[in-house]
């Protein structure tokens, strides 16, 4: 069964159709790229898939269960988590606290146990600390665990956001332009990390990028959108030579 499936999702803002009958099927363990020029509707698609926007028309399912009308946090619980194009960290909290917040649903103690600091509190907090630290270490960020998010270098902030998304133990990880603002070295390293986490956590990754080159390198399948519509879909090689894609990117 597919992990995530969107059928004919359409988003209208007032009279403007930002996304028009978009279709998407993600199989387990896939690494799919969603590309398109600026303003093509990629982020709007993300916002629909994660419940930030409710599509005007269309259905979205995660492992066969509809997510329409569900809140973002409920969708996270069903197995889809995301990062944001313009980094949204909890700036005044430390790196590890950022991750712990996303790990929230796996920490098992109630209000009273937390306030009176029972044994359960300490053991669960220790588990959270260890698990979240491990996650940070996967991104080579162990040393930054107690650094405030706002004081992290830009590249680290991007990585922290991915670590935070992973802490929700998603089936599908959706990354919105994770390499934006990174230099070529950082980008190359990030792409390696994305590849690595897919193997390690055995998850599906959906990646938005507008830099074609970057996606070509790691994605098995690429979907190209322009003006809110899918204009091409296929392997990197197929996309590279598709005349519609070339037109969308370079103009007529």
């Amino acid at each position: 069964m597919s992990v995530m499936q969107a059928k004919d999702i359409t988003m209208q803002f007032g009279g403007l159709t930002a996304v028009d009958k978009f279709n998407l099927t993600l199989e387990p363990h896939e690494l799919v790229g969603l590309i398109g020029p600026n303003g093509a509707g990629k982020t709007t698609i993300f916002n629909m898939l994660t419940g930030v926007y409710v599509p005007t028309i269309g259905t979205i399912e995660i492992e066969g269960q509809s997510i329409i009308g569900k809140k973002p946090n409920e969708i996270v619980k069903m197995g889809a988590s995301r990062t944001f194009q313009n980094i949204r960290l909890f700036k005044d909290l430390t790196a590890i606290e950022n991750v712990k917040i996303a790990y929230h649903n796996f920490i098992d103690y109630n209000l009273a146990q937390g306030m009176f600091r029972t044994k359960k509190f300490w053991s669960e907090e220790k588990k959270a600390q260890d698990e979240c630290f491990k996650l940070l270490e996967i991104f080579d960020m162990g040393e930054y665990a107690d650094t405030l998010a706002k004081n992290l270098p830009y590249g680290q902030q991007r990585k922290l956001e991915i670590a935070r998304a992973l802490a929700t133990e998603p089936k599908v990880l959706m990354l919105d332009e994770p390499a934006a603002g990174m230099n070529p070295n950082e980008t190359a390293e990030l792409m390696k990390t994305i590849h690595f986490i897919r193997e390690k956590f055995d998850i599906t990754v959906l990646l938005i990028e507008h830099d074609m080159k970057l996606v070509m390198g790691i994605c098995e399948r690429i979907i190209v959108v322009d003006y809110g519509k899918t204009i091409a879909e296929g392997s990197p090689a197929e996309i590279k030579n598709n005349p519609d894609v070339i037109r969308a990117y370079l103009g007529d």
């Binding site: 409920e74 944001f84 909890f90 929230h104 935070r164 998304a165 929700t168």
Partner: peptide, 9 residues
């Protein structure tokens, strides 16, 4: 928004 996306109700 980030909080919701991190699974916090």
């Amino acid at each position: 928004i980030a909080s919701e996306s991190a699974g916090v109700p």
